[in-house]
Design a protein around this nucleic acid. Structure first.
Lengths: 244, 244
DNA sequence: CGCCAGGTTGATTTCGCTCAAGCAATGTGG
DNA sequence: CCACATTGCTTGAGCGAAATCAACCTGGCG
């Protein structure tokens, strides 16, 4: 039965469309066959943990469908989602490449399917194909750039502007465009998580959302967001608080 | 003349003590000789630019002495020091490994000496010795961890606690311990720069400094800082604002 | 000397946090 | 089926932290 789904995403790496836009694109057919042979696919429920901080790194994960949050926690018990990952993304390469323990917790945000590739297989592929290592290097470097951009925004923007930026980022991944040019999406995170992503209290986020609705820029209902004038938000996030 | 300084730091990689605690430690003698042969040493004045955002990456730099700030700027003209580097640190590996343009500006904070190693030499060494690539990978990964820790602190700490943390970090690099256990140092940055590193206005930092002095925790005079009770500051940075 | 950059200080306002209450949706056990 | 917790979210009041605007000081430096 399962083998008959050979053409489905994640059922076989050779036919997996996702492969063409992630790290594995540099593998040739034989290498991809090796990957396919060793990958183990598994479904996760919303909220289920994929790995936890402190664990040894046994391999990397490739998101077939769904969404995953990387959460970092500190000594005081604060937990913030550091980044979100989506189908096609690879997960857990940092710990593997450094042979280090997991520093973060990875958690499925919704029902998700992930492929697991064990350490030995990754190492074999890295040895066979140096371009793969370069891919991962680029990936880590781009994570670093993201983190630095994030730091910069945190240092210069107000909570409102940070949230607007977050909304637009999420919209880029999740959003659909309506016929009138407005955009909408289903939020992958609770308001508490959204708040902690911008370093604010959830009450504060609530008020920010209220103000965005007052300003006629967005409508929120449960986890669905509707941005009525996305271009105004874009402007706001570019030159924050010049004037009113 | 110059060749007679063979035993000085930076004059010859083979005898350079710094090499033992940075990326180049994995090179064997022959490889180190190659490095020594191609490295070009140069002195920079305080405030002088080493490279600027937007430039192509021609190689990496190794700090022999002095201190360097990596500054990132955004569209609004904000410029913040992202990280400081000191003797022994390597600079500019991101741009080189990715074959990308510089994203930041590197600037000498004081009179400094740096060795430059051109792209071709680095590539040769990377090909000859795979451990070197692993070193750089670890370096980038640790930068990423630093950035994430920084993000976490920004999201959870007050300006005062962020500044205390910054002070202690700087003290680790620059500080000297007096006989009574107190610690002192020369600040490498202006107050404006220190303020923007924690995402605050310089006026706010001024007040924070005032309060630290009121509390008898530190004394500031020009660019010299004296931490009278470093252990109290350490406590403060660990469990922020639990009580008074 | 005037000028200027870097720093401090004060007055005022704005923003965001804390504490607290209330509300809707969901779940659970009797 | 109802009483009742629980969870996620919103709202309000009060307060404290930090930004803003502005004056002023200080030590170079032409």
């Amino acid at each position: 039965m399962a083998e008959q789904r050979g053409s489905l995403r994640g059922a076989n790496c050779l036919t997996c469309q996702l492969r063409h836009c992630n790290e594995w694109q540099v593998l040739n057919e034989e290498e991809t066959r090796l990957l396919a042979h060793h990958r183990k696919s598994r479904d996760y429920q919303a909220g289920e943990s994929i790995f936890s901080a402190g664990e040894p790194s046994h391999g990397v994960y490739c998101i077939v469908s769904g969404a995953v949050a990387l959460r970092k926690s500190d000594a005081e018990g604060n937990v913030i989602p550091l980044r979100l990952s989506y189908s096609g993304d690879t997960l857990g390469y940092r710990g593997l490449l450094l042979n280090a323990h997991r520093r973060y917790r990875a958690e499925a945000l919704r029902p998700s399917r992930l492929c697991f590739i064990d350490k030995a297989t990754v190492k074999t592929l890295l040895d066979r194909n140096p371009a793969l290592g370069q891919q991962f290097l680029q990936r880590i470097a781009s994570d670093l750039d993201d983190a630095h951009d994030h730091l910069m925004r945190n240092a210069t923007l107000s909570n409102r502007d940070k949230f607007v930026h977050l909304l637009l980022t999420l919209m880029n991944r999740y959003g659909c465009t309506a016929t009138d040019g407005s955009r909408f999406m289903e939020l992958p995170l609770s308001r508490r998580d959204l708040a902690s992503m911008i370093g604010a209290r959830h009450e504060t986020l609530s008020r920010i959302i209220g103000r965005l609705e007052e300003d006629g820029l967005a409508r929120f209902s449960g986890r669905t967001v509707h941005l009525t004038r996305p271009q105004s938000l874009l402007q706001e996030s570019r030159r924050p608080a010049l004037l009113e």
